[in-house]
Amino acid sequence: MVSVVDAVGLLVILGVNSLAAALLTRLFRVRLNTQWGAVLYSVLLTPLVLLVLVLVLGGAGLGPDLGGAAAVIGITILLPLAMGMAFDYFWQPAPEEVELPDRRGT
């Protein structure tokens, strides 16, 4: 049976990983000039960052025992990756639609 502390720890891991995935996806969309480049970087590099975060947060004692490597990858890496990318692509404006102020003095 999962305790309340384990459930809260898992929610913290999911929240941190989703935030990291959304921020990295936005970073790749803003910095890269091609549409597919941002998608490839998001799909290939973001899971590595999420894996490091899971190892750090899980090593700190957060989260329950999920039973196996496939469950850990699915729940703590793939799910937040999908949620973070969906948040950036569907709910945030495209980088080219955002108006930035003029840079004066440079």
Rank of each mutant, 00 (worst) to 15 (best):
S18M: 15
L53I: 13
L45H: 07
S18L: 15
L27H: 14
L32R: 03
M85W: 06
V72L: 12
I13R: 03
N17A: 06
L19T: 10
F28C: 13
M83Y: 09
L55N: 08
S42K: 02
L48I: 14
G9D: 00
G37V: 09
L48M: 15
A60W: 12
L81P: 06
A70G: 08
A38K: 00
G67C: 11
L44V: 12
V39I: 14
G74H: 10
T34L: 13
G15T: 02
P80T: 01
R29Q: 14
F28R: 01
T46R: 05
L51S: 05
L79M: 15
G63Q: 09
V56I: 15
L55W: 03
G58C: 13
D65L: 12
V52I: 15
S42L: 02
V72Q: 07
R29N: 10
L62N: 11
V56H: 07
L57G: 04
L57T: 03
V43H: 00
G74R: 08
G58M: 11
I77Q: 06
P80Q: 02
L81N: 09
G9I: 00
L45Q: 05
V56L: 15
V12S: 07
L55Q: 10
L50P: 08
T76W: 04
L53W: 05
P80C: 07
L62R: 08
I13P: 02
P64Y: 06
L32K: 03
V12A: 11
N33K: 13
G84M: 08
V30W: 10
L57M: 13
I77K: 01
L44E: 04
L48Q: 15
L66S: 05
I77L: 14
D65W: 11
T34K: 11
N17G: 03
V43G: 05
V8R: 01
L48G: 15
V30E: 14
G67M: 12
V8C: 03
W36L: 14
I13D: 01
V16W: 06
L27S: 14
L32Q: 05
A71I: 01
T34E: 15
V8T: 07
W36K: 05
D65K: 12
V30T: 14
W36F: 13
V16P: 05
T46I: 13
V72H: 00
T76I: 03
T34F: 12
P64D: 07
G59H: 12
P64R: 10
V56P: 03
N17W: 04
L51V: 06
I75P: 00
L40M: 09
P64K: 07
Y41E: 02
A22N: 05
L78M: 14
S18V: 12
A71P: 00
L78I: 15
R26K: 11
S18K: 01
W36G: 13
A21V: 03
L14V: 07
G63C: 11
S42N: 05
G15V: 02
L14Q: 06
V49K: 04
G9Q: 00
P47K: 03
T34C: 11
T46V: 14
V52A: 15
A71G: 01
L81T: 06
G59W: 09
A60R: 10
